[in-house]
Design a protein around this nucleic acid. Sequence first.
DNA 1: GTGAAAGCGCTAACAG
DNA 2: CTGTTAGCGCTTTCAC
Lengths: 340, 340
Amino acid sequence: MPSRVRISDVASAAGVSIATVSASLNEVESARISADTRARVREVADRLGYVPNRLAQGLRAQRSSTIGFIGDRVATTPYAVGMVRGALEAARAADRVILLMNAEGDPELESRELATLLQHQVDGVLYATMYHRSVEVPSGLGATPVVLVDAESADPTVSSVVPDEISGATTAVGELLDHGHRRIGFINNTEPILAATGRLEGYTRTLERAGIGLDPTLIIAAPSIGPEGGYRAARQLLELPERPTGLFCFRDLMAMGVYQAASEAGLRIPQDLSVVGFDNMEFAAGLDPGLTTVALPHYEMGTWGVRELLGLIDSPSRKAKQVKLCGQLIRRRSVAPPPT
Amino acid sequence: MPSRVRISDVASAAGVSIATVSASLNEVESARISADTRARVREVADRLGYVPNRLAQGLRAQRSSTIGFIGDRVATTPYAVGMVRGALEAARAADRVILLMNAEGDPELESRELATLLQHQVDGVLYATMYHRSVEVPSGLGATPVVLVDAESADPTVSSVVPDEISGATTAVGELLDHGHRRIGFINNTEPILAATGRLEGYTRTLERAGIGLDPTLIIAAPSIGPEGGYRAARQLLELPERPTGLFCFRDLMAMGVYQAASEAGLRIPQDLSVVGFDNMEFAAGLDPGLTTVALPHYEMGTWGVRELLGLIDSPSRKAKQVKLCGQLIRRRSVAPPPT
DNA sequence: GTGAAAGCGCTAACAG
DNA sequence: CTGTTAGCGCTTTCAC
């Protein structure tokens, strides 16, 4: 923080008091400053390259214009990038700044980082998780407002925004239905996170609504860390006596494994097998054929999160909102009508 | 920034002056505080949940303990994640906090964000780019120290850290040579960025050193945004009368296209064709076979960047360093000896 | 050993 | 219309 020009420098250069400088620059209505003075002050401030010291402003105003963004490992994964970007954007629009922290899933570290955020007097905290899941609201925040991003809480007094998993799955399965598929498999994740249960519910509900009886053999859970899980599940599904013609995958990464299994089984995508993924990761467009997938609303969750937080900061008594945001279907070339 | 407990609260609760609280908590040597008092103050502070106000400390100390991280689009791309994480980690270790900004490649926005960073009195700024390239050092920073991350400058007075492209390419090509390949193609990027020229130089140098004459028909530049460029280049290369047995790709995404072209040409990887990528993106492990690739030192650049910055902050007269960090070969299954 | 006081840069209330 | 003053929470001489 090297020496920079202070308000008093501007004041003496302009031949006025610091109060006049402050009032001129901040366009304070109540203070009657002549247009002349105002203009001169502004001119001098510009010439000197004066920028107000936000630390001092914050100390005075009891508000730092700063928002903390803390993620369990969130700063870490490509997933998170959208949320951070959304938050950054919304913060900038409101002339706020983001203090980023990454707890890497370590609760002890997390509470230390939260404390650091408080020391820096953040006006509010965005608490984000890498996967959509249920969390405890971080404690020790005192009266500082929080909003949960990509996470929800049992506590109805805390605001949160999550993806609408059910509607996401409905969109994905709907795309398959629309192309005429009737036997549709679902390769789910094994971990019992909300993303998994929600997508399963969307899948079953959508099929039921379409009048298609549920066939439990068409649902397989597998580890979703890499394509292997998807690969193995797909092999199993494709060996069924009456194999599915369309597959909905929990993640794009699993769909990647499906492509592999299909190729080994001599099945072409989409002519013989249609597949839709979830996540819209960077490589999805690069698969051959391009993977139709559901994009999660990461960016939108980020922006919603800071807007909600700003609202909470302005009126702390405002009641909490829990919101679900829909994902968007990205159509590429991996879905076609089923073979006849 | 809701009301929190101040030093004066601790002072009155402990029955001492605020000066004593400050000295006790900060373990000031020169101030002779009895062990008793010190302990009592600490106990009271803990009980009250006192944390110092960093805004006030910063104002007083003329140092905010804050570092700005600004990227041209950096917060945006999976690439960047490693740098941000590295920076976060190093900052935390030094009890500093990171203010993140994203300029999205807009110079006008960038200078506004830089100004905002200055208003918030950051002690220094990390300026990061998405691709390794040469940049102008951002102006208007005054005396605030900067370090460039994944970018370099013609100006020798500014510190920077970039990947060692030449050694990265050497590593990649070396892996192919080690397996006995002699005809090695290079699918490069078309844009004239440092990453492209450096990798090309590494490629040619390594072949020359191995006593292999350079064959210009084996070098093809193509757009690297998606796999298509890699696909087309690979088709061309694989149709050569004497086709290469190993391919080095500018990016993993291009390698993805190579896989496709190879499969269409009836060539198996790695038995008929070996390929090595660059980037180690998440999907690289998921390709079939897993892609051998060079991981860029993003994380390390992030940590190096803040350490260098902290050094500069402590001793502004210290002379700048330009550093190149080596990437790491990630061996998977896409490289084998050439067919005989 | 500990406290009083000044001052970091700023804004707002009040005087003039 | 503009200047003086107090005070945001903290650290640091300097007295006692």
